[in-house]
Design a protein around this nucleic acid. Structure first.
Lengths: 346, 346
DNA sequence: CTCAAAATGAGTTGCGCACCTCAAAACACC
DNA sequence: GGTGTTTTGAGGTGCGCAACTCATTTTGAG
C-alpha cells in the first residue's frame, strides 16, 4: 500500500521540467501556434512522464464563459423524447452549479432538409449538440460542417455512422432485435405457430435493424415458428390496431408478437379485442406508463428498453468531456439493452 | 424560448441582496457559528429566491486539499469485487483530474468484529467510505460512529439499513429473486416438475432475500412447479457441485435451477455431468467470464446482473456529492436489476 | 551581415470561492 | 453605566489555470 500520494503537480511543475515557461506549456496544451515542434515534443514528454492532468476545476473556473449545449429533438408529442426532457430537467441543479446551459431545439427530424437547415446556424450559438438524427446525406453533411466548425456533436438514440459525429449515445438496434427474438422464442416455448411483427416503417433505420436482428434469431433458432410479413403501423395507435386486428383474424395460430416501435396502445387493443392477449407472447420496446401497465397486467411479456434517463445524462456528460478534452468513460456511457419484465420494472 | 440566461450569480450578489457581507454568507453556507438566527434566515431566503448554486469548480479549487475516499472490500479472491476494483482503475484519469484519491482497504467483511475494527480508525484518514458490509450490530455501531465523525458512508452491494449510512448503492435483492423466479417459471413453460435452489448460505442477508423473492413468485404464479429445499453450497464450486449432483440423481423431474450466489462453475459441472444441462432451465447471478461462456453455450439461460462498473462509479459519485453537499441524482445512482441473456450480453 | 518573422519568456489579471484575521458594532446582563 | 460576549463587516490570500500583452531571443532568408 506504499502508493505514493498523487503528487498534485501543476502546470508550473511541468514548465520547469520541460525547461520552458508557463506560457509555452499553455500554448502546447491548447494547440495554439507559435511553438517549435521540438519544443512541443519536450513539453508533451514532460506531461506524459508525470501523467499530468490539468485540474478540471481550475480550468473550468479560469474559462469564464459558460458552456452551452443544445438538444435537437423531434417536435410533436413523443413519450420517449418527453422523458429525455424530463430527465434533463431533473439535472438542472447539477447543470447550473457547473455553469452549463442546455437548451431544447425542436424540429422535424424526419425531414432531412428541414433538419439540415436547423443544424446549420447552430454552431455559432452552441459548444455542443446532441441530436436525434436521420441517416441521410444532407444531414450527414450538416453534421460534418458542425464538426468542422469545432462544435462537439453526439447522435442520440438514432445514429448517423457515416458522419464524423464524435459519439453515439444509444443502443445497438440489431442486438435489440435479436434479444426480442430470443425472448419471444423462449417464452413461447415448444408450441409451434406464427409470429407477427408490427413496425413503424421499414424505412426507419433503427426499426429496420431491429427487424433484421429479430428475423436472424427466429430463422436460426426457432424453426417451429414462422414469421409473418412485417406490418407497418407508422407508429400510430389507430393504424397499428387496424392492421394487426386484420392479421389476427386471418391467422388463428399466432403465438408471438413483436412490436418494433410505438403504437403500443393500438397493438394491445387489437390483442385484447381478439381475446388473445393472454395466449400471444407480446414483446415491445421502452418502459412508459403504458407499457408498465401492460406488463403488470400480463398483456405484455417483456419490454426491451434503453434507459432514457441514462441517455440524457450520458449525452450531457459526453458533450462536456469532449468540450473539456477529457477522456470519455466508454463503459459508463454505453447504453445497455435492458430486458424489463414485470418483476424488474424500474 | 425567451428563457432568461441563467444569470450566473455569485456569492457577492447574494450578500448584497441579503444586506450582509460576504463573510456572513460564507458562514451561513457552511453552517459556521456566529450568525444570528434572523440573519441566517435572510441569507437563506436570498439564496432560495435566486435559486443560487455555488460554482462547484470555484469551490473545489478554493478548498485546497484533495478529498480522500476508501473502498472497504472483502479480502480474498472474488471476481465480482475484482471487477469493481478494475472499474475504479479505469476511472483513474477522471479521479486525478479532480484531485480525488480512492484507496482500497481489504478486510474480512464476514467477521463483524474484524470489520468494525477496520472501520474504527478510518474516519481520520478519509472523507468518505464505501463498504461491503455485513448487517450486524457491531458493524452498525461502527458505521454510526463514522457518520458522527463527519465521514460520508455508503454501503455497497450489501446494505445495513439499520445504520445511519448516507446511501446504499446496490440492488433490491427481493426483487432480484422475484425476477429470477419469473424467468425460471416462464422459460420452463407449461412443463410441470421440480425446481432446485443452490445458495451460498441462508445466513447471508442478500441470499436470504433473493430466495424469499424467488419463492414468492413460484408459489403465487407457477403452481405446476414445486420448489425443493435450498441447497447450501457456501459459494464454493466443489461443494455446490457435490450437493447438486446428489439432488439431480434423486429427482429425475427437475426442470428449473436457481443459483443464488457464486459456485457457478460447480453448478454447471453437475448439470453437464448429469447430461441435463439442456433440459434444465438454469438462472444465476452476475456476468463474469464464466457466466458469459455458459450463456453462449446455452447451459445458462439467463443471468441476473447488477452492473459492477455502474456500482463502482455510482459509489464514487455519491460520495463526492455528499462531500460537496450537492444533491444526489437518485435516478442516476439507482442500480437496476439487469436480465442478461445470450443476445444482450454487455 | 541584416532584417523580418517566428518562437519564447516573463508577467499580469481574473475566475468564484474557502478560509482566515482583526476590528468594530450590537447586544445581554448586572 | 460598565463589562463581557456575540455578531458582523472588511479585507486579504491563494487555489490552478486561461487568456492575454509585451519584450526579448532565435531562426532563416536574402
Amino acid at each position: 500500500m506504499a502508493e505514493t500520494l498523487t503528487a498534485a503537480l501543476t502546470l508550473k511543475d511541468i514548465a520547469r521540467q520541460a525547461g520552458v515557461s508557463l506560457a509555452t506549456v499553455d500554448r502546447v496544451l491548447h494547440n495554439r501556434p507559435g511553438v517549435r515542434p521540438d519544443t512541443v515534443r519536450r513539453v508533451r514528454e514532460a506531461i506524459e512522464r508525470n501523467s499530468f492532468q490539468p485540474h478540471v476545476a481550475a480550468a473550468e473556473l479560469a474559462r469564464g464563459r459558460a458552456r452551452r449545449f443544445a438538444f435537437v429533438m423531434p417536435s410533436g408529442p413523443n413519450p420517449f423524447m418527453q422523458q429525455i426532457e424530463d430527465y434533463l430537467g431533473e439535472m438542472s441543479a447539477w447543470l447550473s452549479s457547473r455553469r452549463l446551459s442546455v437548451e431544447m431545439v425542436a424540429t422535424d427530424v424526419f425531414d432531412p432538409s428541414v433538419l439540415a437547415g436547423t443544424l446549420e446556424g447552430l454552431s455559432d450559438d452552441y459548444d455542443g449538440i446532441a441530436m436525434v438524427a436521420l441517416d441521410h446525406p444532407g444531414v450527414r453533411a450538416a453534421i460534418d460542417d458542425l464538426v468542422d466548425a469545432g462544435t462537439k456533436v453526439v447522435t442520440l438514440v438514432s445514429d448517423v455512422p457515416s458522419s464524423r459525429r464524435h459519439h453515439y449515445v444509444g443502443i445497438d438496434n440489431i442486438a435489440a432485435g435479436r434479444t426480442a427474438g430470443a425472448l419471444v422464442g423462449r417464452l413461447v416455448g415448444q408450441k409451434p405457430g406464427k409470429v407477427a411483427i408490427v413496425a413503424g416503417s421499414r424505412g426507419l433505420r433503427d426499426h429496420a435493424e431491429r427487424i433484421f436482428g429479430f428475423n436472424q434469431v427466429m430463422a436460426s433458432e426457432f424453426a417451429g415458428l414462422s414469421v409473418l410479413p412485417v406490418l407497418e403501423g407508422r407508429d400510430e395507435d389507430a393504424r397499428s390496431e387496424q392492421v394487426l386486428a386484420r392479421l389476427l383474424s386471418r391467422h388463428a395460430d399466432i403465438v408471438g408478437l413483436y412490436n418494433v416501435g410505438a403504437g403500443t396502445q393500438g397493438v394491445a387493443t387489437a390483442l385484447s379485442d381478439a381475446g388473445r392477449d393472454k395466449q400471444v407472447v407480446f414483446v415491445g420496446h421502452d418502459v412508459t406508463a403504458l407499457t408498465r401497465r401492460l406488463l403488470l397486467q400480463g398483456v405484455m411479456d417483456a419490454a426491451i428498453s434503453q434507459n432514457p434517463g441514462h441517455e440524457a445524462r450520458a449525452a450531457v456528460r459526453v458533450l462536456l468531456a469532449l468540450a473539456r478534452g477529457e477522456p470519455i468513460l466508454r463503459e459508463q456511457e454505453k447504453i445497455r439493452i435492458d430486458i424489463v419484465m414485470r418483476d424488474n420494472l424500474p
